[in-house]
């Protein structure tokens, strides 16, 4: 397991003209850790994830990947990261297999890993739909396919923007299990969500983003058991924790 920290954001600021979307955000995600990002709509969650992924230039601050400060994320580094957003980002006219094939062949020198498609899809419960056109999928299936695509590249850092939206309860459970399995193998996960139950079930740490600032944090290990963590996260969500008041 690499000793370096996969993702470290230091004093990140992002402005669109007069609008400050992010201010002075510090966030670290370690290997094997699942960090949840909560906050109201417009609190800057998606912007923060986009900056971490290098899809948006930041106005202030530093982005460290794998222990090194990175201004322009290289292709090799992008190969070790994956981003799943709440938009499906799939080609609706192609089948699940073709979508996966495109992704895997784009990232590799040879089509070596095309054989890995079926096991990955089966693991996420899409085994029967491999050769169906994605346009016929339900939202939940699409979301699972996105996740399958992201995991197939065996990333070190996984960013998920609202992954639980449009998943049914069993789907959420499955996603949480898969994320936990991957994290146990060393994957660093940063996910944003409005779904407190899902967040509580899967994360090791939850941070609250409000008005572009990180205003609070709850660490599972600091709390007494699952109930304690649950209460702390819910309290954080209401913006009334000690940390939030302090900030």
């Amino acid at each position: 397991m690499p000793a370096v920290t996969p993702l470290q954001l230091r004093a990140i600021g992002k402005r669109f003209g007069r609008l400050a979307v992010l201010r002075n955000v510090d966030l670290t995600v370690a290997s094997g850790e699942i960090v949840g990002l909560i906050g109201a709509n417009g609190s800057g969650k998606t912007t923060l994830l986009s900056i971490a992924m290098g899809l948006l230039p930041m106005s202030d601050g530093e982005r460290w990947l794998g222990g090194r400060q990175v201004d322009d994320i290289s292709i090799e580094q992008r190969a070790a990261m994956a981003f799943v957003t709440h938009t499906t980002q799939l080609y609706a006219r192609l089948t699940a297999r073709e979508n996966m094939e495109l992704w895997l062949s784009l990232r590799q020198a040879a089509d070596a890993s095309v054989g890995e498609i079926e096991p990955v899809l089966r693991r996420l419960g899409l085994g029967d739909a491999i050769d169906r056109t994605v346009g016929t999928f339900s939202r939940g299936m699409m979301q699972r396919l996105c996740l399958a695509r992201a995991l197939a590249g065996r990333p070190e850092l996984l960013l998920l923007d609202e992954p639980f939206t449009s998943l049914d309860p069993p789907g959420r459970k499955r996603l949480a299990e898969v994320l936990r399995e991957e994290a146990d193998r060393g994957l660093a996960v940063l996910l944003s969500s409005h779904d407190y139950d899902a967040i509580i079930s899967v994360t090791d740490r939850v941070v609250l983003l409000s008005g572009g600032r990180l205003v609070g944090e709850v660490v599972r290990a600091d709390e007494r058991g699952a109930e304690g963590f649950r209460d702390a996260v819910l309290a954080l969500g209401r913006g009334s924790t000690r940390e939030a008041a302090h900030a």
């Binding site: 690499p2 990947l65 090194r68 090799e76 062949s105 784009l106 990232r107 020198a109």
Partner: peptide, 28 residues
């Protein structure tokens, strides 16, 4: 792993990558 977060960007590690990826995207 074929790539890692800590890899330094290498200047000329994959000269065929550009035409290959361009063709894959066009074919897609």
């Amino acid at each position: 792993r074929e790539a890692a977060l800590s890899t330094l960007p290498r200047a000329k590690n994959a000269p065929m990558r550009l035409p290959r990826q361009a063709w894959l995207l066009a074919r897609n």
